[in-house]
Design a protein around this nucleic acid. Structure first.
Lengths: 321, 321
DNA sequence: TCAAAAGTGTTATCCTTACACCCATGT
DNA sequence: ACATGGGTGTAAGGATAACACTTTTGA
C-alpha cells in the first residue's frame, strides 16, 4: 500500500541475495554442466554469455533457500533437481549501479536430460578448464600456455619476497618441481590464473585456449564446484547420484575418471569398489558393452553403516594403458 | 535525504544478512569457543543467552563478507582473528516481525586469549554436546539419556515406514548395532536429536543434561563447525592454527584429541605425525612437561608440497590407556 | 625412589599396487 | 580369428596397529 507512495530506495541500501546452481551430469565419460543464456549479454561482443541458472531470492517468498533454488531451476530449464548441496556463498561486491549482491551457490547432481528450453544446454566442464583433464596424460596446454603466462606474471611482480611466495603457490598447485598434481586443488589453480590475469572473469574476448568464459563470476563458482566434487567423491558415495540405479563397473569408473580428470587402473578400481562394499551385483547383465556382457551393479546402501567414509578412492596408480 | 521522508518499508520486503563467527581455541586439552551475551535475552528465564559473536551486514559498508566479520568480532570482543574460513549459510526463515534473515557463518581458529569485554568468554565445546566427547570412553549419557529419548521418539512416529528409516539413521549416526562411531557426523547427530525434540534450539529450559543451549540456532551452527573441523583435521594441517609456533608432540596430540573427541594411541600418533613429515624438530626442549623434557617441534610447511592431503590421521586405534 | 611423561623398537596384519592371465561376446 | 571389454589370481611392498621396553626429568 505505502509502496506506491515512496520513491525508489537508495540503491546503496539495497542488498540482494541471489541463488545459483551448478547442475552436473556425466554422460559417456563427459562431465557436463547445465548453462543458460545470460540475460545480460556481453557489452562488447554483443552476444549472450553462458551463465549458470540463477535468480534472486525474493524476501516475500516464504521458502527455504534450497526450495527457492529448485523452483528457479524448474522455471528456467524445466528440470526437477534430485541431490542438492550448498556449495559456497560468494560476495559479489557492489555491481555497477551500486547494488550490493551476495550469491549462494548450490551443487546439484543428476543424470543428463534433454532441455526443452531455448538457450539452455549442457557444456563440457573441461571446456572451461582444459588444464584440469589429465585423462589422456598431462595436458600439453600446461607447458605451452599456462606456465609461460604464469612465469611472465611472476617476473613482473615488484616485490621479490612476494614473487617467491607466489612461485611456491604455482609449484604446489600445478605440481611442479617434484610436487604431485592434486586434482582437488581446482579452485586454487583457477585463482592463481585469475590473479595472473590469464582467465578474466566475464570479460569480452575471454574465450580462449585457456577455456570458455562465463557470465559474472560463474566460472569461479564452477571451479569451486569441481573442487568440492573431486574432494567429496573420495569419502562420500556421490558418484551414484550421477548414475542410473543399475550400472556396470566400467560406467562407474568412467564417472569417477570424468570427475577427477585422471585415468584409473581398471582392475584395482574394481577391487576397491567391490571389496569396499560400495556396490552389490544385481545378477543382471548389460549386453551392449561391445565385448563380453557386463554385470549390472547397484549402490549398496548398507555401506553407509559399515564404513565411516565410503567413497571411490583415488589410488596413486592412474594411467591404465 | 529521502530516507527521512518515507515511512518504514514493509518488513516483508526486507532481507537481512547476518554474519556470525565460531571462534575455536584449544587450551590444556579443552576445546573452547568464544561466546557473548545475546542482546535478545531469554523471554522466559529473563537471563542473557549465550550467543556466537554476530552482526548484520550493512550494505552501505563496502567490504567483503570476511572483512566485515573481522571488524564485528574486533568490536564485540577485541579479538583480531587469524585463520578464518567460511562455514555455511543458514536460512533463518522469517523471524517474529516478518523480517527475512540469512546468516553466513565463519569458522576461525586461534589460541585462547583473555577477553576484556564483559559478557564475552570461552566455553567448553563439549558442554554443548556432551555426547561428542569420547576421550574417557563412550559417554554413559548416551545410554542413559540419549537412546531412551530417541527410542521413545521412534515409537511415537506414526508411519512405520518412516520409523524404520529413522531407526536406521539413529543406528548409523550413533554407532549402534555394529556401526562404527564416526566423530565427524556431529551435525547429523544434532539434527536427529533436534527432530526428536531432545535439544530445543534457543528455548527456555533448554540447558539440560543434554547440553547447554544457545541463542537463535547457534548451537546448530556450532555443530556444523565441529563437524567441519573434525573432518578437515584429517586432510589439512589446521591443528597448527590452534598451537603456538613451537609445541611438543604431546600438545599436538592433545589438540587432535580435543577436536576429534577420541583418545589416540600415543606412539602411533607420534610416528604418523613425524613420518608423515608434518612436523620438524627445532632442537629446543620444553622442561615444564612434568617428566622428561620434550622436544619442541614446528609445523613443517614443506609438507604442503609433498603430500596431497597433509593432516593428522585418525587411526582406528584409540584409547591409549 | 617413584611417578610421569618422552622416546625407541619390533612384529603381525592388512591394504594397496602392479603384474599376468583367462573369459565371453560381436564383427 | 581377433578386437573389445569383462573378470580373476597372486605376490611384493608399504602402511597401520598393538605390543613391550628404555630414558630422562621433578618431587
Amino acid at each position: 500500500m505505502i509502496e506506491t507512495l515512496v520513491s525508489a530506495p537508495d540503491p546503496a541500501d539495497v542488498l540482494r541475495v541471489d541463488l545459483c546452481a551448478i547442475i552436473v551430469a556425466v554422460t559417456d565419460g563427459t562431465p557436463r554442466i547445465l548453462t543458460i543464456e545470460s540475460a545480460e549479454s556481453d557489452p562488447i561482443a554483443s552476444r549472450a554469455l553462458r551463465a549458470l541458472p540463477w535468480g534472486p531470492l525474493d524476501p516475500r517468498t516464504d521458502r527455504t533457500l534450497e526450495r527457492t533454488l529448485r523452483s528457479w531451476v524448474a522455471r528456467q530449464s524445466r528440470l526437477a533437481l534430485g541431490y542438492v548441496e550448498q556449495l559456497y556463498t560468494f560476495d559479489e561486491g557492489r555491481a555497477g549501479e551500486g547494488l550490493r549482491r551476495i550469491s549462494v551457490a548450490y551443487l546439484a547432481l543428476m543424470q543428463e536430460q534433454t532441455i526443452p528450453q531455448a538457450g539452455a544446454g549442457w557444456q563440457d566442464v573441461y571446456h572451461f578448464f582444459p588444464w584440469e583433464d589429465w585423462r589422456e596424460g598431462r595436458p600439453e596446454l600446461i607447458d605451452r600456455c599456462l606456465l609461460p603466462g604464469l612465469t611472465h606474471w611472476l617476473g613482473a611482480l615488484g616485490d621479490p619476497l612476494q614473487a617467491e611466495r607466489e612461485r611456491e603457490r604455482v609449484e604446489i598447485y600445478f605440481g611442479l618441481d617434484g610436487a604431485p598434481w592434486v586434482p582437488e586443488r581446482v579452485l586454487e589453480r583457477y585463482e592463481l590464473l585469475y590473479q595472473a590475469a590469464l582467465v578474466p572473469e566475464a570479460g569480452a574476448q575471454a574465450d580462449s585456449v585457456l577455456g570458455l568464459s562465463m557470465a559474472f563470476n560463474h566460472r569461479r563458482v564452477l571451479a569451486t564446484a569441481l573442487a568440492r566434487l573431486r574432494g567429496k567423491i573420495k569419502y562420500r558415495p556421490v558418484v551414484f547420484e550421477l548414475l542410473p540405479p543399475r550400472f556396470t563397473l566400467w560406467q562407474l569408473q568412467q564417472v569417477a575418471e570424468a570427475l577427477t580428470g585422471m585415468s584409473l587402473h581398471k582392475q584395482n578400481f574394481r577391487r576397491l569398489v567391490e571389496q569396499g562394499g560400495l556396490v552389490a551385483s544385481t545378477g543382471e547383465f548389460a549386453y551392449d558393452t561391445g565385448g563380453r556382457p557386463a554385470q549390472l551393479f547397484r549402490f549398496r546402501r548398507r555401506v553407509l553403516r559399515e564404513r565411516p567414509a565410503p567413497g571411490v578412492g583415488l589410488p596413486g596408480g592412474f594411467r591404465d594403458s
